[in-house]
């Protein structure tokens, strides 16, 4: 039931990703200040935006789970957070590479976005030990949802706090949303963002399909075992 629309989605993200990379390498101009290395921006920032949206979306799905009691929403929330953590690791690695290339250090503590992202990432890493140390499936789903909601609300609050802590010393010249980017760079950025979002949704659906299929398989196996215990044993 989850696999519906997966193929066109996968095709769309493949096309978008190829377009995005083509634009990044052949269309967008080199940054006057940072040169070629600035192009990592088109991977790093969309990844970060999509990962944060994924975390918040995981929280919203968790709210729906608690309201409806439908375990499917918990599974959706779990997979969204799972995918966001994977992207988040990518964000931290590309961020460190970018920081090394443009500021000369692998890690810069006075960059509020990077620091807030690390805190959020560390918090979400606890999702796995919490989730998998609860055995009862129904309780596991409820506790995970409570965590997802708390952490989802924490994401914006944490960004405000870390930003405020640095606001006086480091005013932000270029807003991260691409508001003050020149036209060609902005187009490339928006296509990259769309590609990353599309990739996220595709992976999310794929993982859900796989989880659903393996659960179904387990169920069928169990039924088979009940029907003919000798044959399976």
């Amino acid at each position: 039931m989850y696999s519906k629309g997966l193929k066109p989605l996968a095709a769309a993200s493949a096309v978008l990703l190829v377009t995005a990379f083509a634009l990044v390498f052949f269309y967008a101009p080199n940054d006057a200040d940072q040169g070629f290395v600035q192009k990592i921006f088109y991977v790093h920032v969309p990844m970060a935006i999509v990962a944060l949206c994924g975390f918040v979306a995981g929280g919203i799905m968790a709210i729906r789970h608690l309201r409806s009691g439908d375990p499917a929403w918990d599974m959706r929330s779990y997979v969204a957070i799972h995918m966001s953590i994977i992207l988040g690791l990518g964000v931290l690695i590309t961020g460190a590479i970018w920081a090394r290339a443009s500021w000369g250090h692998w890690w810069v503590w006075d960059e509020p976005v990077l620091v807030s992202f690390l805190v959020v990432f560390l918090l979400y890493c606890v999702y796995y030990p919490l989730r998998f140390s609860i055995d009862d499936p129904e309780r596991q789903a409820r506790y995970s949802s409570v965590f997802a909601i708390t952490a989802g609300a924490f994401v914006p609050l944490n960004f405000v706090a870390v930003r405020l802590a640095e606001a006086y010393t480091h005013p932000r010249v270029l807003s991260q949303t691409g508001g003050s980017l020149p036209g060609e760079m902005r187009l490339t950025f928006l296509v990259s963002l769309a590609a990353m979002a599309c990739l996220f949704v595709t992976l999310w659906k794929l993982e859900l399909t796989a989880k659903h299929a393996s659960a179904e398989l387990k169920r069928l196996r169990r039924r088979l075992a009940e029907r003919q215990p000798a044959a399976v044993a």
Partner: peptide, 15 residues
């Protein structure tokens, strides 16, 4: 689990 959950959540408060 308790400290791992608690400490990142307290970062804005610590700041």
């Amino acid at each position: 689990t308790a400290p791992l959950l608690l400490l990142p959540l307290l970062v804005p408060l610590l700041i």
